[in-house]
């Protein structure tokens, strides 16, 4: 499908850098200049600078910017602690909170014309998912040692040949369901928006979908974070 105008790609083309016409480029520089890569960096820079500018120096009596971020970070911290315990929440807060902020901003940015959601590419969501998946196994092995493997064996030794494939399959399903759900929802939103915009943009046809897009973006980011929290707490809890 023809991309709508993406302003970073236009700027890169003016600078003489090769922007791939397909989803991914053929060589290294083209791959780096692919829209989902450049917009990933844009979201990273946005988060970094906006937080830096709005917070500035931490003060004892918070100003407006610091107040906002205190509410955001505080409610996320409460949410994590409620769902996976204080200890785990303290240790993994930076990672999960970064994911939450990044995914939310990355989802929402696609609603603005000229921007694209980096999460509308399977590469981005699969990378995020693999980090979560590997981390939750790392948590399990760290907590239970080699006995973590018992979680995959089921409750009765006799049933191991039956339970092992089931547990392995349902564990592998986490990778696909987590990554493809986020990717599918956001890509559907982007595609629907661009089609409606091309067909009947003058009659405000994309407007209801824009509204739904806000809901989908926030809910999908929340689903991702909630599932991450659930997986972490399941890996850390005693084998059932």
């Amino acid at each position: 499908m023809e991309h709508p105008i993406l302003f970073i790609s236009v700027v890169l083309q003016k600078l003489g850098l090769p922007v791939p016409h397909g989803a991914v480029g053929s060589n290294f520089i083209e791959q780096i200049c692919a829209p989902y890569m450049t917009y990933t960096w844009f979201v990273m820079a946005f988060l970094f600078f906006v937080i830096k500018v709005t917070i500035g120096d931490l003060e004892l009596i918070p100003g407006r910017g610091q107040n906002f971020w205190e509410v955001v970070v505080g409610s996320m911290d409460d949410f994590f602690a409620e769902n996976m315990g204080r200890e785990l929440a303290d240790r993994y807060f930076p990672m999960i909170a970064t994911f939450a902020l990044f995914i939310t901003v990355a989802n929402l940015i696609g609603l603005i014309p000229g921007f694209m959601s980096p999460t509308a590419s399977l590469n981005t969501t699969l990378a995020l998912t693999l980090i979560v998946w590997i981390t939750h196994h790392a948590i399990g092995f760290k907590k239970h040692g080699i006995g973590y493997l018992k979680q995959f064996a089921g409750p009765i030794p006799l049933l191991i040949p039956l339970m092992l494939p089931i547990e392995v399959i349902s564990n592998l399903a986490r990778i696909i369901s987590l990554s493809v759900r986020l990717f599918g929802n956001i890509m559907a939103k982007e595609t629907l928006l661009s089609i409606l915009f091309l067909l009947a943009g003058g009659f405000f046809a994309p407007l209801p979908i824009l509204l739904l897009g806000v809901l989908v973006s926030v809910v999908q980011a929340m689903v991702f974070v909630l599932l991450t929290v659930v997986y972490f707490s399941q890996a850390a809890e005693q084998a059932h």
Partner: peptide, 10 residues
């Protein structure tokens, strides 16, 4: 939605 929205897909 966050709790049960993923059931079908998984």
């Amino acid at each position: 939605l966050a709790n049960y929205g993923h059931v079908g897909f998984t």
